[in-house]
Design a protein around this nucleic acid. Structure first.
Lengths: 214, 214
DNA sequence: CGTGAAATTGACTAAGTTCAATGGCGGTGG
DNA sequence: CCACCGCCATTGAACTTAGTCAATTTCACG
């Protein structure tokens, strides 16, 4: 994807707007591990993720990363900070290599947002984010560690199997030790099975579900 | 406020739309303590708070209320559940008596959302919510209890003074005991002072700030 | 005053994290 | 081929933070 014209968010833009947009936006490629913006950075740039996986996280005073979400293309990122003119509330780091369209927000004409199609896309994006954050709150504040692990195994079984426990723990915002102990507990109850060199098997889905469905 | 015509969200609506809207919406008054909807309820109703204070909270498996936000008029509530057709992710309860406009979402014509002014209001409402939830995550996941209390004292000094510690604790999602101990700690450090029958005095704002600004 | 709610305090508990030790496993290089 | 290295996983013990429970004191207010 090399042109703003290919971005779904803008698919109904007028030719005039396209030409404007091209003047104050550009594509940038990133390597895995590179930071797009830091929590606390001043706003002003709107990001559209067009390639790669972008992780959003906050950092606590002890330096621990608190995982919030991983975006996949095509996603609008950073609009809250821009709309509200507040510092970015989280850090964005590429997990894979990727590409982003960077847009100078301040130079976007207001009438840009008069376009109903753009508005609709923005509403969709914001709605997704409310949902994401609402889920984060549920997962982190309401569920116990056991419940989080059980939910992840059931709802993201393939991801669970493809990632190292290390990575799973970081997504769940628990330590690898806690994950290890929780899995040991599940195995002891014979709710799951982890044969050597093979995928985890769920033996008692109902028991696992009971942990996170009240 | 007795007419949909007075609601800012709709102030640019056509006469035609007003008449439509009046057909599938109605005002309802509530007493303090009454529930507007429960977490887990099926969606379908859009709420516009026009009078009173409405608390949004989740309930954890132990039955504790997890405070998320208190809305004041005029606020759109429940739009996420409606847009995404998902169960309400939290419970809404009136703290004071109040009044709400209930709108049957399914009967809203799609062209309702073609109205740019409506879209703009929805974007504003969603933006507010992303901000609210983002703050909730910061407060609850990143800050310690001490930091939460310090932040609340400084940023909501008047509210802190006007509420019972009981209430403050519930807003901060900590127990009254923890709040009491934290305040005792602050007093011992001479960061605050609490003369009998008088408002709390902040003696060392910088020290308090350092607790929640990294 | 007296009564019931709110606040305080102490001892204990619960849930997870931290730290440290150990074991497994795969890849690499002599 | 195997010894070594580094990363990951596991396990135990101590620690941290805040919640729980219970007893007591304070307070507001009729």
């Amino acid at each position: 994807m090399d042109s703003v014209r290919e971005i779904p968010l803008f698919n109904k833009l007028s030719e005039e707007h396209f030409r404007q947009l091209e003047h104050f936006s550009y594509f940038k490629t990133y390597n895995a591990g590179e930071i797009v913006f830091y929590e606390g950075d001043d706003p002003g740039t709107l990001y559209i993720l067009v390639d790669g996986v972008l992780r959003l996280y906050k950092t606590d005073p002890k330096g621990h990363e608190f995982y919030i979400h991983q975006f996949v293309p095509v996603s609008l990122v950073g609009e809250l900070a821009c709309f509200e003119n507040m510092k970015y509330p989280a850090t964005a780091r590429f997990i894979t290599s990727g590409k982003i369209l960077k847009i100078d927000y301040k130079r976007l004409e207001n009438d840009f947002f008069k376009n109903p199609d753009i508005c609709f896309e923005i509403i969709k994006s914001l709605t997704r984010k409310v949902k994401i954050l609402s889920n984060v709150i549920h997962q982190e504040m309401i569920l116990t560690s056991d419940a989080k692990v059980a939910k992840f195994i059931i709802n993201h079984f393939d991801i669970f199997n493809s990632l190292k426990n290390n990575e799973v723990a970081s997504i769940l915002n628990i330590t690898p030790e806690t994950l290890s102990r929780t899995l040991a507990k599940f195995k002891k109850q014979r709710w799951i099975e982890q044969p050597r060199h093979a995928n985890t098997k769920i033996l008692n889905k109902a028991a696992l579900k009971k942990l996170f469905e009240e």
